[in-house]
Computed example of a mutant assay.
Amino acid sequence: MTAPGNRIAVVTGASSGIGAATARRLAEAGYRVVLTARRKDRIEALAEELVDAGHQATAYALDVTDRAAVDEFATAFRSLAVLVNNAGGALGADPVATGDPADWRQMYETNVIGTLNITQALLPALTASGDGTVVVVSSTAGHGTYEGGAGYVAAKHGEHVLAETLRLEIVGTPVRVIEIAPGMVKTDEFATTRFRGDTDKAAKVYAGVSAPLTADDVADTITWTVTRPPHVNIDLLVVRPRAQASNTKIHRDL
């Protein structure tokens, strides 16, 4: 099932990783994709790549934590088919006793308030479409705790609750709410950003796991849920690599 070319999908955090992969997949499925992220050069390059491949794509530099900028962005849409809330990320892996409150605040602002900002701003356009979809890309961290991850876990729990509550509150409207909760995904930036550029620490996250999820695995999952018939809502889909049974139980060939 594909979307007609006039159906628009907005993807946040589209400059790399899951966001970029999702933009590619949705474009291939027939959506006009609008790529947003803070790194203008990256989303413009991706939009150009997609257009060169025969798809419809535009780039819009946006920080989802800037409510005024988000509201201005939303004025461009009278009707919108899909919003993929992907912008987010983790900072640090410190215990609660020594975690930096600034890291906690930034993770909450990006993962939760950013998702709130753009979902609120675009919900009227999603409703006006008569068949809108809100996707929240959370994490298995939003469904289980692990040592050294409390700040990120708290933020992702908040994002999960936002999705769950929104679904309850807008039932009966022509908008569905889908939550995708990925487990271990190996991307170019996630772990490196979390450890502030320490590539050795980042590599240890995936040590001994021969086949973690890829960004495209998650993008494929997102696109599958979005392209189900309108009456079908995939409320929550947890996706992990086979080697990961839980946030703390991972098989490693070491």
Score class of each variant (00 low, 15 high):
212 P>W: 00
240 R>N: 02
48 E>L: 13
140 T>G: 06
189 E>R: 15
243 A>Q: 13
146 Y>R: 14
190 F>W: 14
248 T>V: 13
61 A>H: 06
109 E>C: 05
250 I>T: 10
34 V>R: 06
35 L>T: 00
105 R>W: 07
62 L>K: 06
121 A>F: 08
179 E>I: 12
25 R>L: 09
241 P>M: 00
120 Q>E: 15
145 T>S: 14
6 N>K: 10
92 G>L: 02
187 T>E: 04
183 G>D: 03
172 G>S: 03
96 V>C: 08
6 N>S: 13
161 V>Q: 12
137 V>D: 01
82 V>A: 01
166 L>V: 05
165 T>C: 08
25 R>M: 09
67 R>T: 05
32 R>I: 00
13 G>A: 13
130 G>S: 05
208 G>R: 11
139 S>F: 08
109 E>S: 11
118 I>E: 09
134 V>T: 07
50 L>N: 13
99 G>A: 15
180 I>E: 01
12 T>I: 09
28 E>Q: 13
68 A>E: 14
175 V>P: 00
131 D>C: 02
102 A>W: 00
5 G>T: 13
4 P>W: 01
212 P>Y: 00
156 K>N: 13
210 S>V: 11
196 R>Y: 12
233 N>P: 00
177 V>K: 06
33 V>L: 06
230 P>T: 09
164 E>M: 11
200 D>K: 15
6 N>Q: 10
66 D>C: 11
178 I>C: 07
199 T>Q: 15
16 S>D: 14
121 A>Y: 09
153 V>C: 15
122 L>R: 12
242 R>A: 15
144 G>T: 12
107 M>A: 07
25 R>H: 10
216 D>P: 03
27 A>L: 03
137 V>F: 01
238 V>D: 04
254 L>G: 10
8 I>R: 09
142 G>H: 03
179 E>D: 15
38 R>T: 03
249 K>E: 14
74 A>T: 08
30 G>Q: 06
17 G>S: 14
211 A>E: 11
130 G>R: 03
235 D>Y: 10
80 L>S: 04
137 V>Q: 02
153 V>R: 09
21 A>C: 07
